[in-house]
């Protein structure tokens, strides 16, 4: 069932993405660099919200998946075809997510947060240990891939993630997740395999984060565990997604744009205060903006726009 409204939304989304894809012709310096960061966070936050929005499980595992993705490219870019690397990263991300999900998603949300919080650090420790044993250090990813290429790849990936998110939202899986988020007991007794539904979604978001890592590796040039698995990334993604709001597909994007600009500004002028900014943003979301910008938008619309109905 595709309604005229759906077609309008699809066309609008396609036009917006097309417009975004033109940006490198306008600027290939600072603005492109910021836009690439935004595109990266858009993909990460949107795929994060696909899972965490309906289920209310807060995943802090993004950095773990992302870091693994960068390592896939770092290890494979000389020997394997470039197009294969994101696919391998996706596979590894999905498998790791499935394993983590099987262990933790049967249990309450607190266990999941804690487990994912340490996951990036755990993977980092293991990778560092393996590197030490094999006598490797960090690695150089020297390719002919430019920032412009990375940007376009990310825009393409964003289009894919939005499409997948849209399809899931209309599918039985998406409906099942909404029910789980409302009342897991009811979900189970209505015939929903709740553990499976959560694991599948978590696998999707894990795979996407790993692909983003794989695509971005050439941007960093030099990759080592302490930067590739930096836990701050997970928190940035959570903040942006929640600031925008997870109730709509476009919600995270509404958080990514202002927060990236703010983050860029703060880390330029007061690099020691970025953590303070993160903290304040978290508190702001809890106390002032529950539901994020999407929640605010819905509240305002209900107050002022619903009069006609």
């Amino acid at each position: 069932m595709i309604t005229p409204r759906d077609i309008r939304n699809l066309l609008l989304a396609a036009a917006a993405l097309g417009l975004a894809a033109l940006l490198p012709f306008y600027d290939s310096g600072y603005i492109l660099s910021i836009a690439t960061t935004m595109a990266m966070f858009t993909v990460l936050a949107t795929s994060w919200a696909l899972f965490s929005g309906p289920t209310h499980y807060i995943s802090l595992a993004t950095a773990a998946f992302f870091g693994l993705g960068t390592f896939v490219t770092g290890l494979g870019f000389q020997t394997l075809p470039m197009w294969l690397l994101p696919l391998i990263a996706a596979g590894i991300g999905a498998v790791l997510a499935a394993l983590v999900g099987m262990v933790t998603l049967r249990l309450s949300g607190v266990y999941f947060v804690i487990f994912t919080l340490g996951l990036a650090e755990l993977v980092r420790q293991v990778v560092t240990w393996v590197q030490n044993r094999t006598g490797q250090r960090g690695m150089y990813v020297l390719t002919s891939i430019t920032e412009r290429d990375i940007y376009w790849q990310l825009i393409g990936l964003a289009a894919l993630v939005f499409l997948v998110g849209w399809l899931i939202g209309r599918s039985r899986l998406g409906f099942a997740l909404r029910i789980i988020g409302n009342d897991e007991t009811v979900a189970k007794h209505s015939g929903i395999d709740t553990a499976m539904a959560k694991i599948v979604l978590f696998m999707i978001s894990g795979a996407v984060a790993a692909v983003v890592g794989a695509l971005l590796a050439p941007r960093y040039i030099y990759i080592e565990p302490s930067t590739a698995f930096a836990p701050i990334l997970s928190f940035q993604v959570v903040i942006m997604a929640l600031l925008g709001g997870t109730g709509r597909l476009w919600g995270p994007l509404a958080g990514v744009i202002p927060f990236t600009i703010l983050w860029e500004f703060i880390s330029r002028h007061a690099p020691n205060q970025t953590l303070l900014l993160l903290g304040v943003a978290f508190l702001l979301i809890v106390y002032v903006l529950p539901g994020g910008f999407v929640g605010l938008y819905d509240r305002l619309r209900r107050r002022f726009g619903a009069g006609g109905q």
Binding site: H56, I58, G109, V110, V113, F235, L242, N272, Q273, L275, L276, L277, L278, G279, V280, A281, F282, L283, L284, I285, V286, Y287
Partner: peptide, 16 residues
């Protein structure tokens, strides 16, 4: 969920 987010916020503020 609220207390996880709030105490994370607090933790970052304290680190800051």
């Amino acid at each position: 969920v609220d207390s996880i987010l709030a105490t994370f916020g607090l933790s970052f503020v304290l680190v800051g």
